[in-house]
Amino acid sequence: MEPTAVPPYTFKDFASDQEVRWCPGCDDYVVLRAMQKALPEMNVRKEDVVFISGIGCSSRFPYYMDTYGMHSIHGRAPGVASGVKLANPALSVWVITGDGDSMAIGGNHLIHALRRNIDLNIVMFNNEIYGLTKGQFSPTSLLGQKTKSSPYGNTQPPFNPGELALGANARFFARIAGNSPKLISQVLVDAHKFKGTTLIEVLQNCVIFNDGCYDAITHKDVKEDKQIFLEHGKPMLFGKNREKGLVLRGLKLEVVTLGENGITEADILVHDANEKDPTLHGMLIRLEYPMATGVIRSFEDYTLEERENALTEQIKAKSSFTKTDDLFFSGETYEVK
């Protein structure tokens, strides 16, 4: 059958009839809408889209998408999603997770998903707190942070999700502020196009339990000065007038200003997301000022499905078995008369 063209969807086609129940003002609404707007850009049929989530506020996400979806159990969405994708590689499979879901209870599944490189997209809503259980510290809560379960200050040092991802050999990592809907849509489309496991960390504000945790970076008054939005092949410039940039001095990234000390645009590092060596990606991920956002790493490698398919085809070509009876009657059998 000739494949027919994907219908021209709008964001409305991806909104389910379920009432969205996040707290008013939550960044989750922003991501939801950004996703609904990104999907029509992806040239994918809605019946081929699957959202798998774990447990937590953000994990309600699949209920609000008019696609196939599963709200699974705490931490296990990458496992479920891996099964969906391996069962039917034609599907576009998305994991929706939070910082606790993906890095505490589900940490093991996250690192192994990244290591295997199945073509999945993992969107991690990082609000540095447990929201659904009402305010305990998470694996990304800051040292000293006072929460319901750390009334005198958190003593557990946090993960940097990007560092964890690189440690697990992630081929694609992006970080994006939860209050920038257009950029979120753009990164989601990039992630969709990328063949392999992607991890998109969304810096998501929790209005109830950790309000303002990213204000110093994402507030509209400071975001251009405090964030550097990276684009592959473009110089690493930031600032309201794109007057600042990054250079490499020794083993450190340094912020410089164009025009000062003879610095010109030619001195500024050019972002290479496709580089296999993750060293510079790691430095960008660890950078505190400016906070690196956008697609930091995007290195294409074989996916697990591709490796498996190649092997399967090779074995099929060599095997004399076409049906199970061939196997059952092969080798050492004997007749009883």
């Binding site: 599963m70 296990r76 479920v80 969906v84 994708k85 391996l86 069962a87 039917n88 599944h109």
Partner: peptide, 15 residues
């Protein structure tokens, strides 16, 4: 756990 959850994913997808 990933053994069974991957199987659940595959069951959802029709295997």
């Amino acid at each position: 756990i990933a053994g069974i959850t991957s199987a659940i994913g595959a069951a959802f997808a029709g295997d």
